[in-house]
Design a binder for these strands. Sequence first.
DNA 1: TCATTAGATGAAGAAAGCTTCAGATTAGGA
DNA 2: TCCTAATCTGAAGCTTTCTTCATCTAATGA
Lengths: 210, 210
Amino acid sequence: MSQPSHALLEPRKSPVQARSAASVEAILEATVQVLLSVGKDRLTTTRVALRAGVSVGTLYQYFPNKSALLQAALKRHLTAVASAVEHVCREQEGQKLQPMVTALITAFLQAKMQNVKTSVALYAVSSDLDAAKIVQQIGSRSTKAIVQMLTTSPEPLTADPQLIAFMLQGLMTGVSRKLLESPAPEKHFDAVRRELISMACAYLHACSSR
Amino acid sequence: MSQPSHALLEPRKSPVQARSAASVEAILEATVQVLLSVGKDRLTTTRVALRAGVSVGTLYQYFPNKSALLQAALKRHLTAVASAVEHVCREQEGQKLQPMVTALITAFLQAKMQNVKTSVALYAVSSDLDAAKIVQQIGSRSTKAIVQMLTTSPEPLTADPQLIAFMLQGLMTGVSRKLLESPAPEKHFDAVRRELISMACAYLHACSSR
DNA sequence: TCATTAGATGAAGAAAGCTTCAGATTAGGA
DNA sequence: TCCTAATCTGAAGCTTTCTTCATCTAATGA
């Protein structure tokens, strides 16, 4: 009688004992693994539970349905990336533009490459109707942070910071996605990072002297 | 006895009479509409057939299964975009870098915005295991065209053209996707296009004088 | 006109997956 | 130690969806 079920996608139960927290963790981890090995279409709750080493019943104790499970996994990953971005942005406030974007891009890429497989696996989830909202929602956290950072730079910007942040995000997500989905992401990581920084710097330079 | 079914995803039958060609067209169109209205997860072959104004049986006369249907719809759209890109690239051979990318970006965006809804709807399909292969396959057509175009410019490039093409594609797809998934794509279309060109030009400028 | 081929239909078989729930097991505290 | 609450289990019901195929209708050409 604690909560009327107004939010159908929230966890049904919060872990109290240590073992249940471990179950939730295992389930989320297994979700990514299954996603990666068989794809979203052939992902079944039973399969996830099996891989997690628990029974389906346990899974449904913490996630009201399959969709919620996928969204939870996605949210977890996106939040990690957004936090990383917010962190550098705060750190770089007041700096000049070039070091700013260099730090931003480095941090973003690192967060994505931290667990390449997770990132790739979750692309399949992210384009789903409801999931897209989550992506935008959490993505806007990054936008805000970037805008805030940009406005603290001593170098004046001629274009709308909001627009610049939009472009930078588009650039980073687009390029990193292409990289992650390429045959050997690690191999070209450094070269791509360099180019990414080079492009962003060139762009910002143009923005601050137009 | 015409063809042994070696390719499970190819159409079962090729339209001979006009009405069947119309059916195929209607089915493909309906696929996108259903995708858009209820999302990939709730897309059923029956629903698509209903929307197309044909029976399920007819659908299965031309597509061996649901997956093939989705892939066909995706392929159709990607091919159109790739063709547009190839076309401008050929057209711009020998030009200077700046007009090149300006034309490239303009053509790419136009192809995507031609039918905004189709593009958005198909994002949900594109991230699926098998579909990802198609995306890469057709995407590489564009890469080749861009590389080819770049190498014909009189301005010398210091970086690997392959890498530059990669970056440009990442930039264009990333930004256009963000735009398409935003609340009002048309509204910011022009501003984004300008920035896109600005960024690409700044980048290429850096590439040709480093 | 009529035979033959192309195309369309949709009820129904079969499979697959989601989700539940009644009962078993484990942990924590009195 | 023993009771209570937390957690786990997995067989099975229920629903949904895919896909087939026997049959009907429309077009083509001789």
